[in-house]
């Protein structure tokens, strides 16, 4: 080493600290992310062999140990679509109210507090609520209807918040221009703002329904059944559903084939990740097409 130029010990130690700390962050991130990927891939590998035409389209046989999961798939579809029927219009309308109509006052703040609370209520408490109101008080019985209504209220906060956010991103100038051309408030919202916010709204809807499709606790005592020999005939019938089916076959059926379990999980995962992917696609496409 040339004389006179000595490495600064403080700089060196801070350099070491820097390197070590940044690696620590990378390590932590890997610890979060790798298990997720591992789980998803593991389920795909273990579940793939049991996926067959029969598995998808047949009824379970021999106490779930053989056959397919058709009624559970159909049930989850029913539940998801039924939830959408209630929560999508209500959630979008509420999002519109918050973004486009609500004055900045105490009432609006109260609404926001309510939404934050709805978002935080444990899913099993929604289940209790659904049981108390829809199943018992309104006498819908253990039914698709009761489950859908319960899931709807649970998904509402997601849909409302994403709708509001998507609407707020639409430039204010469009609203002013539309108003100046003689549009009423609703006309501006319906013809200009909402169409521009639609991709964001759709993303929120999909994410909300994704949650509804995968939830078990809210439907546990409101609408699902362990096994049904036929598909539900009306909204007042109980139904089978994938998440509940998974719960049952992985905890309460002795001698259950592990492969069928993984297969069922894979089908649910396919549902949920498919919706996730769809939401991302909507977002990416919209960003590319956006005019502002």
């Amino acid at each position: 080493m040339e004389d006179g130029i000595k490495p600064n010990p403080i700089l060196i130690s801070s350099h070491r600290q820097e390197t070590a700390s940044l690696w620590l962050l990378r390590l932590i991130t890997l610890m979060t992310v790798l298990p997720i990927l591992a789980v998803v891939i593991y389920i795909m590998v273990k579940g793939a062999p049991s996926i067959s035409w029969e598995f998808i389209t047949a009824f379970p046989r021999n106490g779930m140990r053989e056959g397919g999961i058709w009624p559970a798939i159909v049930g989850t579809l029913y539940l998801t679509l039924g939830t959408a029927v209630f929560s999508v219009p209500l959630g979008i309308a509420a999002g519109i109210y918050l973004a486009e109509y609500a004055p900045e006052n105490r009432w609006t703040r109260l609404i926001r507090i309510a939404i934050i609370n709805l978002a935080g209520i444990p899913s099993v408490v929604y289940g209790l609520f659904g049981l108390g109101v829809f199943v018992l008080f309104l006498k819908f019985g253990t039914s698709i209807l009761a489950s859908c209504l319960t899931l709807s209220i649970m998904t509402l906060p997601t849909i409302i918040s994403t709708t509001e956010e998507a609407l707020r991103q639409v430039p204010y100038s469009f609203r002013a221009v539309s108003r100046s051309l003689g549009a009423t408030h609703w006309q501006t919202t319906w013809r200009i703002v909402l169409p521009q916010a639609m991709p964001g709204v759709l993303t929120g809807v999909i994410l909300g329904l994704e949650r509804a499709a995968g939830e078990t606790a809210p439907i546990l005592f409101t609408g699902v059944s362990f096994f049904l020999p036929q598909l539900p005939q009306s909204v007042f019938d109980a139904t089978m559903a994938l998440p509940y089916h998974i719960f049952v076959i992985s905890t309460s059926v002795p001698g259950m084939s592990v492969q069928i379990q993984y297969g069922t999980v894979l089908v649910l995962l396919f549902f949920v990740l498919g919706m996730n992917l769809l939401a991302s696609l909507v977002r990416v496409r919209a960003r590319a097409k956006r005019q502002w």
Binding site: G214, E215, V272
Partner: peptide, 8 residues
């Protein structure tokens, strides 16, 4: 987005 029943 993973359903909790899947994690369970």
């Amino acid at each position: 987005g993973l359903p909790s029943v899947v994690l369970g």
